[in-house]
Design a protein around this nucleic acid. Structure first.
Lengths: 123, 123
DNA sequence: TTCGTGTATCGATGATTGTCAATACTAAGA
DNA sequence: TCTTAGTATTGACAATCATCGATACACGAA
């Protein structure tokens, strides 16, 4: 039974997903030269994707409907603080969204955001 | 008149494009959980995309048929060694391809590689 | 309230990275 | 050959990052 449900991106922080609309409305790379602002915003997202642990983490989360933080430590062979660090970075990039249920933190992928990024790369 | 033409990725190095087929045959993120090897290979490419200067550089190159190295310094406001450093990283990631003509280095985008990455993110 | 447990934060450390001045390399012309 | 000019490499430095132990916080149960 679900006792408490709270939508958050950064677990106990304000819900901040950076660059939401900037990314959504950004043109494909090959069409227009990017501004410095666009470049910084998008670079942050690629930066979130530039770590092997986070990539496998995102893959695990995106392959299921949702995954608990506690289910990530063992397969990724990382400590609990490290897992928390990486989920936070993915969430700040808008690639995953977190939901607290009691003591547990559940994560699910944000396919819209992933499509936005794919579109920027797409030909 | 073109005197000498040499296809290279790393300007005066061996032609090394890392992960070429690994990336091309990699499944979308949400389909199968990534192996550590896949994750490392793909993380390297996202790492190349994770810098604002490189993103703008790639955008400039992809917006034209080809761009000379010497045409990048001024609009990006970076020194020549820095430009060379960034083109090298993009080339090693397989995102751009270089061609030397005389004293000049010409770069063009690799849309196939960009599509491969988009497909990995795509839904 | 107290205890147990899952998660977030802090602090420190070793590794990686972006940047540029100086220098070496490469190619074309004189 | 010597000179000029575009590019690559080296070396150094400041900044950022991944990692984890220790600790604080949040929540449910007794």
């Amino acid at each position: 039974m679900i006792v408490n449900t709270k939508m958050v991106n950064m677990a106990q922080h304000k819900t901040i997903t950076v660059n939401a609309d900037v990314v959504a409305c950004c043109s494909p790379l090959a069409h227009v030269e990017m501004s410095e602002t666009e470049a910084s915003d998008i670079a942050q997202i690629f930066s979130a994707l530039s770590d092997p642990v986070r990539l496998r983490m995102l893959s695990m989360i995106a392959s299921e409907s949702e995954v608990c933080s506690c289910a990530l430590e063992e397969p990724l062979a990382k400590s609990q603080p490290t897992i928390s660090h990486h989920t936070r970075i993915l969430a700040e990039a808008g690639l995953i969204v977190g939901e607290r249920r009691g003591r547990w933190m559940w994560w699910r992928a944000a396919p819209d955001r992933m499509r936005d990024i794919a579109r920027i790369l797409g030909a």
